[in-house]
Computed example of a mutant assay.
Amino acid sequence: MADLEKLLTTDPVVQQYVSDMIEQVPEEERTVSDIPHLLQCLDQIATTAPEYHWDPASRRFFPMSHLFVYMMATDAGWNAFRNQKFNDALAGVLQYWYRFLSNEIPGQDSRTVLNDGPTGWLSPPAYEEFRLFQFEVDLGKEYGGLASYNDFFHRALKDRYRPLPTDPKAIVSPNDGKVVRWRQGVKRQDQFWLKGQPYSLEHMLNGSEYAKDFADGDVLQTFLSGADYHRWHAPVDGKVVAVDKVPGYMFAELQSMGDDPTAGTHSQCYGASVNTRGIVVIESTAPKIGLVCVMPVGITEISSITHSVSVNVQVTKGQEIGRFSFGGSSMCLLFQKGAVDHLAPDNPSGDPDNGAPVFVNGQIARAR
């Protein structure tokens, strides 16, 4: 927090952007009065675990998104959240919050919200809403037997709830979520900042040599809500040939999309080129599939991406290869040209709330 406070008091450009974005929020939506008040709110968020709340009207599952949602949609906000200095300073705040939620801060415990009371994530309503019976959560133990709030957020799934298909040509979803879009004939380089949010492989893959391999291929993007399983699995059998993590933006929205009350989910195709994201390229053992890229994309909040595989490791279809910690998240799958037939339906609207559901280890495509 000290680095952010210093930036906002010593850098006149960033200070002006942030002051203006606070003032540009319509008065009826304004919850922050000035920069000191903003810092106070961020400090409170970074030292608190989100509560559940039985009453939906009282829920703030993603409190930093709630804090920033209207600021993100102002003229000054579009500039502020794309400012590298401001983004980096916010990343420091989020990293502290990540450590708090992972119980890495001595003397502090994020598990206090893991209880069966009216604000608890282990309460009967939460148990039903989040289908906790599918996960490795033990209600007979304190805090569900979990080590931290983040341990709850990326809780392990019981194997029997996500069986693999028997078809050897099946390509499976790496995650739970909803389809945002299927796109064919994706260009190696495109104007990803346009309203239609085309995919640009060079930008998505951060200039990687693999961009040429996926040129004219397909992209499937899915959105993970806070209720979804937040680990991700291998969609095919094969060898990992590349692993990378690309630092990027966290709260930047595509300006041409206009106001977004969802705090960035309508800009997540744009986010695939500019947000913090992971890259795992797998060389499939099935020759007709070729290369497949698994690309987790952070949206707002922590944007925490953790890989559990490394280069030259053999993976099997359905094997866990990484996870998101607390925060918003999206997933892109990249396929080479002509490699697969689509099975999961497209979502022409691009609205993540309208997309068809996908489930980890469930078949989404088939090798040709």
Rank of each mutant, 00 (worst) to 15 (best):
D3S: 07
D3P: 00
D3K: 11
E5V: 10
L7M: 10
L8Q: 08
Y17A: 03
S19Q: 13
S19K: 10
E28C: 02
E29Q: 13
D34G: 03
A46C: 14
T47L: 09
P50H: 03
D55H: 02
V69L: 09
V69P: 00
T74Q: 05
D75K: 11
D75Q: 13
A80Y: 02
A80E: 07
Q84P: 07
L94H: 10
Q95M: 11
D109F: 01
V113Y: 01
L114E: 02
Y127T: 14
L139Q: 12
K141I: 08
Y143V: 10
G145M: 11
Y149E: 11
I171V: 15
I171M: 10
V172C: 12
V172R: 05
S173A: 14
V186N: 13
R188L: 10
L194A: 14
S208L: 05
A211T: 13
L220S: 03
A234S: 14
V246L: 04
V246H: 00
P247Y: 01
M257H: 06
A272R: 02
G278I: 04
G278W: 00
V281C: 03
I289S: 05
P296H: 01
V297T: 10
V311M: 12
V315P: 06
R323T: 06
K337P: 04
L343F: 10
D346H: 07
D351R: 09
N354L: 10
N354K: 13
N361Q: 08
G362M: 05
A365D: 06
